[in-house]
């Protein structure tokens, strides 16, 4: 069974523009998928339909057993707990330190603070951030900030990790490091979906799938398993 199914999904904003038009594809467990396309192609919109921030205007999205057609409002948080999301601007909370930025993802679901803390420290250590846990977000470099965001996304061991332009604000060396982290996450079985217009990235991942969008339509869907 596939993790994600888009079936003839169209999205119209303000009833006049197709941000997505008739998009269909399936993504399975363990895939590494790039969503590429020029600015305004609909990459962010597509990712938003996976964690149901947006709902299709027509068509259907199925994710991890939930359907955009039948999911209840109060079930959406439970879907979100199975999906990690990171963004170009990290979306960290500037009023609390690194550790608290990570534990919050566990605490809101009722995990006891002690357990949340241990789990967060463990994942931050894996990402090489052990010595930064009590730093505030504004004391971090771009690469470090994104690592905190990744830790927050991974701390609940999601089935799917979505990354929207994850290296847009980061210097090239740190960007490579972030990409390596994403590959490692994928190697452990997590489905990873990266939206980017940084085509240079594509060559750095061997086993990958590339979905190309243009003006809201899928114009190419290629799988590369051997370079």
């Amino acid at each position: 069974m596939s993790y994600i199914t888009f079936e003839k999904v169209s999205k119209v904003y303000q009833n006049r523009w197709f941000a997505l038009e008739d998009v269909s594809f399936e993504i399975d467990k363990g895939e590494f998928v790039f969503i590429i396309g020029p600015t305004g192609a609909g990459k962010t919109t597509l990712l938003s339909h996976i964690y149901l921030k947006e709902f299709p205007s027509s068509g259907e999205v199925q994710i991890l057993g939930y359907s955009s057609k039948t999911i209840k409002r109060h079930e959406v948080p439970f879907l979100r707990r199975k999906i990690g999301v990171i963004f170009q601007d990290f979306k960290l909370l500037h009023d609390r330190n690194v550790l608290k930025n990570v534990t919050i993802a566990l605490e809101v679901t009722g995990v006891p603070s002690g357990v949340a803390r241990e789990r967060a420290i463990e994942i931050l250590r894996e990402l090489g951030m052990a010595d930064k846990i009590s730093k505030m977000p504004n004391e971090l470099s771009g690469g470090e900030g994104q690592k905190v965001a990744i830790a927050r996304a991974l701390v609940r061991e999601p089935f799917i990790l979505l990354a929207d332009e994850p290296t847009g604000n980061i210097d090239p060396d740190s960007a490579d490091e972030i990409l390596n982290i994403l590959k490692r996450v994928n190697d452990r079985g997590t489905t990873v979906i990266v939206a980017t217009h940084n085509y240079a990235f594509l060559d750095k991942v061997v086993r990958k799938r590339v979905i190309s969008l243009q003006a809201g339509k899928v114009i190419k869907d290629e799988k590369f398993y051997i370079k």
């Binding site: 109060h74 948080p77 919050i104 809101v108």
Partner: peptide, 16 residues
């Protein structure tokens, strides 16, 4: 708002 957006993102329920 920023905080609420993030809580929503990480799967906090509406009542939380």
């Amino acid at each position: 708002k920023e905080l609420i957006e993030i809580l929503d993102l990480v799967g906090a329920t509406k009542s939380t």
